[in-house]
Lab assay of single mutants.
Amino acid sequence: EETGVRVELAEEDDGEKIAIKLWLRIEDIKKLKGKYKDNEAIEFSFDLERDVPEDVAQEMVESGYVCEGDHKTMAKAIKDRVSLIKRK
């Protein structure tokens, strides 16, 4: 499903790190509610043992990086990427 958002690794995952750096990349602004630039990327750290995707997305909303209306879309994108990383 195309959401307009993609999360990718910002650094090589060696399988050892607990906290990883990720990029939340805006790919299609028409599919989102907030005002973003095409190909805008937000770099953030995610602790694989402690962080919760919904909470991280909420922090982005509170910091003004993400529109409240896009919270669920961002949280799902983060959750999907993190579950792929954890499965390795």
Rank of each mutant, 00 (worst) to 15 (best):
G69H: 14
G34K: 09
R50M: 06
P53G: 01
S45Q: 13
E16Q: 13
C67H: 15
E11M: 00
D47R: 00
Y36L: 04
S83N: 14
V61E: 01
D13L: 07
D70M: 07
V61P: 00
K37G: 08
K30S: 14
F46W: 01
Y36C: 06
Q58F: 08
H71L: 14
D14A: 10
E54P: 00
D55P: 01
A41G: 08
N39C: 09
I26G: 12
D70V: 02
I26C: 08
E8R: 03
E49N: 11
E43W: 04
K31E: 10
E43V: 05
A75Q: 00
M74L: 12
K31Y: 09
Y36W: 02
D14E: 11
I78R: 00
A75R: 01
D51L: 03
R6T: 12
A10G: 10
D55K: 14
L84P: 06
E62C: 08
E8V: 06
I85R: 00
T3N: 11
K35D: 14
R6Q: 07
K86E: 07
D13F: 10
C67I: 03
D80R: 07
E11C: 05
D13K: 05
E43P: 14
K35G: 06
K21Y: 00
R87A: 08
R25A: 04
E59I: 10
M74W: 03
K79H: 14
Y65M: 14
A57F: 00
K17R: 10
V61S: 01
K72S: 14
K31W: 05
K33H: 13
L84S: 12
D55S: 11
R81I: 04
V5I: 13
K21W: 00
Y36V: 06
R6I: 07
E11Q: 04
P53S: 03
L22H: 06
E27K: 13
K17Y: 01
R50Y: 08
Y36G: 06
E27C: 15
N39L: 05
L48R: 02
G34A: 02
K31C: 08
E49W: 06
Q58D: 05
V7R: 00
G64K: 03
T73H: 06
L24P: 15
A19G: 10
L32R: 08
K86Q: 12
A75I: 06
A77N: 03
V5R: 02
M60R: 00
V66T: 04
I18R: 15
L22N: 06
V66L: 13
K76V: 03
I20Y: 06
S83M: 10
R25K: 13
V7E: 04
I78Y: 01
E40N: 10
D13C: 08
M74F: 12
G4M: 04
T73K: 14
K76M: 09
Q58I: 02
K86N: 09
E54S: 05
D51N: 05
Y65V: 15
E43I: 08
A75M: 11
K33M: 03
E27N: 14
R25Y: 13
D70A: 05
E12Y: 08
K17V: 04
I26M: 10
K72C: 10
E27Q: 13
A75C: 08
D13A: 09
E59M: 12
L22R: 07
F44G: 01
D51S: 09
C67S: 11
E68L: 04
Y65P: 00
K86I: 00
D38Y: 10
K30I: 06
S63Y: 09
D70K: 02
G69S: 14
K35S: 12
E16S: 11
A77Y: 05
E11G: 05
E68A: 14
A77I: 11
D47H: 05
R50W: 02
K37Q: 11
I26Q: 13
A75V: 11
V5N: 09
R6C: 03
D55H: 14
E40Q: 15
S45N: 14
M60C: 01
L32A: 06
E8S: 06
D55N: 12
E40W: 13
G34M: 01
E43M: 10
I42S: 01
V66F: 07
A10N: 08
F44Y: 08
K30W: 03
D28Q: 01
C67Q: 06
D80L: 00
K30M: 10
I20H: 07
G4I: 11
K21E: 01
I78Q: 04
D38S: 13
E27F: 12
I42T: 06
L22W: 07
S83A: 13
E40R: 11
D13Y: 15
E8Y: 07
L22F: 10
L22E: 08
D51G: 05
K37P: 09
